[in-house]
Every structure is written in C-alpha cells, then in structure tokens.
C-alpha cells in the first residue's frame, strides 16, 4: 500500500467487478464451465427454434436408427429424433433445476438467516430440523418426498427443492454468524438501523458470494437428482423429453442400439460437469481468502 495521505483522494483500485473478471478470465476451468452452461442455457431458451424435429412425433419406420446425416444422434424405440429430444429436454431440466434451486435458496436462506441472527432456542430448533434432513442421504430424501407426494414434474421440483434447503440454510447461517460479529454490523446497530435493514442491507449482501457458489453447484446436484428420479420412474413421466427418463428408456436397448441411452447420459454428464466447473471457478474467484 502506498502512503495514503499523499495519494489522491481516492486510490484507483480496480472496481470489484473488473477485479472479478480479471481473476475469472485467468481461470481456465471456470471458462470451460461458463461456456458449457452458456450453450446449455441457449438450448434451454431457444430449443424449439433450433431442434430439427418434433421431439414427440416418432416414425415407426425409423425405430432405433443409428446416428446418420438425417438423424445426427439417431432415433429411439418409437422413432423419435434423439437430438431434438435432448434439445427440448434442456428446457425441461432447466425449469426443474432453476425452480428447485430457487425454492431451496429462499427457504434455506430464510431458515439460516433467522437461526444465525436470532440464535438461542429458535436457532436450536431450526438447526435440529436441518440436521434431521441432512441425516438422510440426499437421494433417499428426494425419493422419500416423491414417494409421499407421488411422481410427476411438479413433485420432482418440490422434492429436489426441499432437499436443497439444508445446504443453503447452513451456508447462510454460517455467513450470518460470522458477519454479525463484524464491526460494520455493530456500527449499523449503533446508528439505529432496524433488524430488517440489518439483515437485508448488511448481512445478506455480504453473504452473496458463498450463496452464489452454492447455487451454481446445487444446480448440478438437482439436475442429477431429478434425472435419477425420472430414471427410476418417479419423476417426469413419458413422453416428456427428460434426460433421465430417456436414459431409463434407452437402457432396454443398450445392447442393440447403445446410442439411445448414451447421448442423454452424455448430455447429463456434460451439463453437470459444466455447472461444477463454473461453481468451482466462482468459488476461486469470489472467495476472499484467495484474494491477495
């Protein structure tokens, strides 16, 4: 640090955003993740305009056709174009993922902030509930919720959303616990800020970085779990083009037409990798301990 009293009024540091981009742009795996997620989001948004065929219309003459120039990734057991189904499936999985993570984020952060800020008996009760949820392996928890609610698109969202609550709750609580001891929060109390303002203007904005990282990483977990539920027949029902359901359907023909199961599986694999790389990259760039 140069002599502050001699330097101009405001030292020209890099702005937070530009510093963020500088670090992000030197992180190769984060860029790959960003690229994959970008392509995925493009298909989720514009799928219907770029897909070559109707994902639901099959042609029995073309059953289990291998990849060709006509059907780039081949066709499935009732002659539907697998590429078109994967492209449409991007939207299905994105809706599940985004809604479920949003549910987990909102409920989890609420629980975590209330527990962390108020402490005492409220915190103990909330955290015991969270502990109970964490005691189940996450896929069992999701299966249990779906079993209780019944299979279906909407219930998969509820199940994967609820099973994301503990992770967000713990991260929010940990952030609030450390932030509320910080001097700027004490200073906010001393200038007469209300509890609501302290939470919304001081605690939440300063917890954003870990929550963003968790949101990204959680996307991949939810995608994988939703696909697993569909694979088990508990999730999105046919004929909706969902990757997990497609994989499950292709399983039957894996010996005679391996492409039917391989490509949906590959799509899941690549997108999960993409979100993980992006999440790890964000953690590296946002984590204050990594800053010099």
């Amino acid at each position: 640090m140069t002599d502050a009293s001699l330097s101009p009024a405001v030292r020209r540091h890099q702005r937070p955003m530009s510093a963020f981009w500088r670090r992000f742009s030197t992180n190769r795996s984060a860029q790959i993740g960003f690229l994959i997620v970008g392509v995925y989001l493009f298909f989720a948004a514009f799928g219907p305009w770029v897909a070559p065929y109707d994902p639901l219309a099959g042609s029995l003459r073309m059953r289990l056709a291998p990849p060709s120039t006509e059907f780039w990734l081949g066709t499935d057991d009732i002659g539907r174009d697998i590429l078109s189904r994967i492209i449409y499936g991007a939207r299905v999985s994105f809706i599940i993922m985004a809604t479920a993570v949003a549910i987990g984020l909102v409920i989890g952060v609420l629980i975590g902030v209330v527990g962390g800020y108020f402490g005492g008996i409220i915190d103990s009760i909330l955290m015991r509930i969270i502990d109970v949820m964490l005691a189940f392996p996450s896929i069992f928890l999701a299966i249990g919720i779906v079993a209780a609610l019944g299979p279906g698109f909407f219930n998969v969202i509820v199940a994967t959303g609820l099973f994301s609550v503990p992770q967000f709750a713990r991260i929010a609580r940990a952030s609030v616990l450390s932030l509320k001891e910080r001097e700027f929060v004490e200073a906010a109390h001393a200038s007469g800020e209300s509890t609501f303002n302290i939470i919304s203007l001081y605690l939440l904005p300063n917890s954003l970085a870990p929550l963003m990282v968790q949101t990204t990483l959680r996307m991949s977990t939810v995608l994988l779990t939703a696909a697993a539920l569909s694979f088990l027949g508990l999730g999105v029902q046919p004929p909706t083009p969902e990757w997990g359901a497609m994989l499950s359907n292709g399983r039957t023909y894996v010996m005679i037409a391996p492409h039917v199961a391989t490509y949906p599986g590959l799509a899941i694999f690549i997108v999960v990798i993409g979100f993980n790389l992006l999440g790890d990259g964000l953690r590296d760039t946002l984590d204050p301990r990594m800053k010099q």
Binding site: E183, H189, P205
Partner: peptide, 25 residues
C-alpha cells in the same frame, strides 16, 4: 425507542474504520 436514540441522539464512531463500513455499498 432505542433505535431512535441511536444515531440521532447518541452517535458512535468505532476504532477500526476499515471494518466499520458495509463493504458492498
């Protein structure tokens, strides 16, 4: 009632100015 006293009635300045302001605004 204390919230109205804090700041407007009695204001407080702390020891470490670098940590006494909200870093994100």
């Amino acid at each position: 009632q204390m919230r109205r006293v804090r700041g407007a009635g009695i204001a407080m300045v702390f020891q470490e100015p670098r940590t006494a302001m909200n870093p994100v605004f």
